[in-house]
Amino acid sequence: MTAATLAACSPSPQVSARIGAEAAKAETIDLAALTPFAWDRALVFSPYTSTDDICSALPASFTSCANAYPQGVDEGSFLLVFVRAGNVVHHELHGRHNGEFCSQSCRLELRPETARFTVTSSASDQDRKHFSPAAP
């Protein structure tokens, strides 16, 4: 299956587009404000994260993890996973063209009240947006 097909398996795969649109016009983004559903924990997996690493970090209730992401995360994407009360409520691939959460390998674990980022542009590519945790 292709990455686009897998992303479409998640209900309303629109968070990445909202992030990209907000990053294009604002100096900060608030991830909780950009999600049309409730969540209490979000995980962001960087490109090249393996299926084993993804599935071991997610609640056991997400039994379809290995089927949803059999090759892990490819080089052009981040994986966003939102959890509420121990259940995955939404997951989708976030294209790097919509903004980068880290420049190296990373796994971020966020709460709604701390999921705020400062948006900066790359010196070499003004269209490429980078996100850094915003000061509380």
Rank of each mutant, 00 (worst) to 15 (best):
A42E: 10
A135G: 04
S50E: 06
S124D: 13
L43A: 03
C55V: 00
S50A: 04
A33S: 12
D127R: 10
R107K: 11
A134R: 12
D30L: 13
A57L: 06
S64G: 13
D30V: 15
A60E: 09
L93Q: 01
A7N: 15
D127W: 14
Y48S: 13
K25E: 15
S121M: 10
S64V: 01
A60Q: 15
A17H: 06
F101N: 00
L31A: 02
E109A: 15
F45R: 02
T28P: 15
A134Y: 07
L6E: 07
P136M: 03
V88H: 03
P36N: 11
L79V: 06
E113I: 04
L31K: 01
V88L: 09
S132A: 12
N67S: 06
K129F: 12
T35Y: 01
E100Q: 12
S61E: 12
S103P: 08
P133N: 02
A4K: 14
P47N: 02
Q14R: 12
P133H: 07
V73R: 00
I19D: 04
F82Q: 01
L79C: 00
H90D: 12
P11I: 05
G20P: 07
G95V: 04
I19Y: 03
I29M: 01
L43C: 13
C55E: 02
A33C: 05
G72E: 00
S124R: 13
E75F: 08
R128P: 03
R116V: 08
V44D: 00
T28Y: 15
Q126V: 07
A21E: 15
A23E: 07
E100H: 03
V119T: 05
L110H: 09
R128K: 15
I54V: 07
H97T: 11
L34Y: 05
H90L: 03
A134M: 13
S103I: 12
E75Q: 07
I19W: 01
R111C: 08
T120R: 09
R111W: 08
T114D: 15
T51I: 00
